[in-house]
């Protein structure tokens, strides 16, 4: 048992080292890579534009539910006027970055892991390596750069749509004065809240893309599974790990950035 624990620990440490190297190489390889702009645009489309409908729908319903729940809770204390404060701070500080990242894991992250896994399986990555091309510069770097650019914007969209959802349930459905709602939103959200939101978005985006790309890229190294099963296993692992890491990173960043009264 001690031996197995030791072997697993060593394997984990080795994999963490591999992951760190993989991620750092993805950044450094981008420098001077030819036609990388075109690949970044494509990655922005895949990771950003294609995810917008999901982000809008989930953001809207999150805001609607927050508005509804918040209204009745605050109503017990006669504080419905604080609905805008509750919805905006909950969304901007917490729910928008986390939920947007989880949506992204499910849509862009899983697609990325599966695509790279299939490329590995069909020797497309080997082909790039044998021709002397940098696989990191060609396949991974554009996704990293796109993630840095796109995730904060998506999180902002999620927040705005969520605030609108809170307005719909609070003001349109439950008759809270719209001026009261929007002025509470305006007064509650401070620049440091927006900074926290964007910091989280950028970190979650990078972590998600790095984990999904790493797992897809190394699909052939999974023990006990080959071919299509290796692709499915690596995609599942990428999604599960990314989700856990996003939540863990959320706690760490929140504990570092939380604004104490």
């Amino acid at each position: 048992m001690i031996r197995v624990t030791g072997q697993n620990t060593l394997r984990m440490v080795q994999e963490l080292g591999d992951f760190a190297l993989f991620s750092s190489r993805a950044f450094t390889a981008a420098v001077g890579s030819r036609k990388i702009g075109r690949r970044i645009v494509r990655a922005i489309y895949e990771q950003g534009v294609r995810c917008v409908p999901v982000i809008v729908i989930v953001g809207l319903f999150t805001g609607l539910v927050l508005g509804l729940q918040g209204f009745y809770v605050l109503n017990r204390f006669g504080s419905e006027g604080l609905l805008g404060t509750l919805v905006s701070l909950t969304l901007v500080r917490e729910l928008a970055p986390v939920l947007a990242a989880l949506m992204l894991v499910g849509q862009a992250g899983s697609a990325l892991a599966a695509e790279l896994g299939i490329q590995r399986n069909s020797e497309q990555i080997d082909a790039l390596e044998t021709m002397g091309a940098s696989t990191h510069a060609y396949l991974i770097s554009p996704r990293f750069i796109a993630a840095l650019l796109v995730f904060p914007i998506q999180t902002a969209v999620f927040s705005l749509v969520g605030l609108f959802g809170g307005y719909l349930s609070g003001s349109v459905l439950l008759n809270l004065q719209s001026g009261v709602y929007w002025s509470a939103v305006y007064n509650a959200v401070q620049p440091e809240d927006v900074l926290e939101c964007f910091t989280k978005a950028a970190v979650f985006g990078l972590l998600t893309i790095a984990i999904c790309a790493y797992n897809g890229f190394n699909a052939h190294r999974r023990r006990g599974s080959t071919g299509a099963r290796a692709v499915s296993a690596s995609t599942t692992r990428a999604v599960v790990l990314s989700s856990i890491v996003v939540l863990a990173a959320d706690y760490i960043i929140t504990s570092l950035l939380v604004h104490k009264p």
Binding site: R34, E123, Q124, D126, A127, L128, M131, G132, A137, Y138
Partner: peptide, 28 residues
């Protein structure tokens, strides 16, 4: 100085025929 022709061809399926052929020149 070397090229490799894979058994399964290993063509990049998201690129057209022309883009596939141009790829090694573009990237190296």
């Amino acid at each position: 100085r070397c090229s490799y022709l894979f058994q399964g061809n290993a063509l990049l399926d998201s690129l057209t025929a022309l883009e596939n052929v141009a790829l090694p020149l573009e990237q190296t």
